[in-house]
């Protein structure tokens, strides 16, 4: 009462002061560039496109179905389908742009994507010197390999891979069944 409250408070701050030198738990601040990567599994920032294998264009999972473009609330995705020489639409985008200055990181594109193609990146160092071209992410910039995906979000990537493998297995099974059916219906020679 008679001034002991002040002393008690001073003791608390002193404990904080010296404690911050002794225990790392008190000092929760991360020194930014050299403090190491502390990005958590679920952190998300801006979408990116996953490709399998080595070649970005060949291994692209995206089929330019444009579901994400339609679902995007701020409409920051712009997709143009690729065409071959004869003008037939291919199942991959020619242009896939995301305006990073518009994207709000809502992850709805990820929710709607049926091909496990678009995922959220956790790279937050997006500053550029030009706010128009610099923040307009094109296909080449957005395409990142599956290994990178495994690096930043291992659980999500694993789950996604598992789902894709399951799909592939089912597809193969179906094909095998169809083939078996086909061979069963054909007359025996």
């Amino acid at each position: 009462m008679n001034g002991q409250g002040i002393l008690k408070g001073m003791l608390v701050t002193a404990k904080n002061f010296f404690g911050s030198y002794v225990s790392r738990e008190r000092l929760t601040t991360v020194s930014y560039p050299e403090g190491g990567n502390t990005i958590k599994e679920q952190s998300r920032n801006i979408p990116f496109l996953v490709f399998d294998g080595e070649d970005p264009v060949a291994g692209m999972r995206c089929t330019a179905c444009q579901k994400c473009e339609k679902a995007c609330p701020p409409q920051c995705i712009f997709i143009e389908k690729d065409k071959d020489e004869r003008g037939k639409a291919l199942q991959r985008p020619k242009v896939f742009d995301i305006d990073a200055s518009v994207c709000m990181g809502c992850q709805i594109c990820v929710e709607v994507c049926p091909f496990e193609s678009i995922w959220m990146d956790s790279n937050f160092e997006l500053s550029t010197f030009n706010r128009f071209e610099g923040l307009q992410f094109n296909r080449e910039k957005l395409l990142k390999s599956n290994t990178y995906f495994h690096k930043i979000h291992p659980q999500q990537a694993q789950a996604s891979d598992d789902r894709l493998a399951e799909k592939e297995r089912k597809r193969l099974e179906r094909e095998a069944a169809r083939r078996a059916e086909k061979s069963a219906s054909e007359p025996q020679v």
Partner: peptide
């Protein structure tokens, strides 16, 4: 520096 440490921060570094 001191205020930072009291508030469990680094302070200027």
């Amino acid at each position: 520096k001191g205020l930072g440490r009291i508030q469990n921060r680094y302070g200027p570094n």
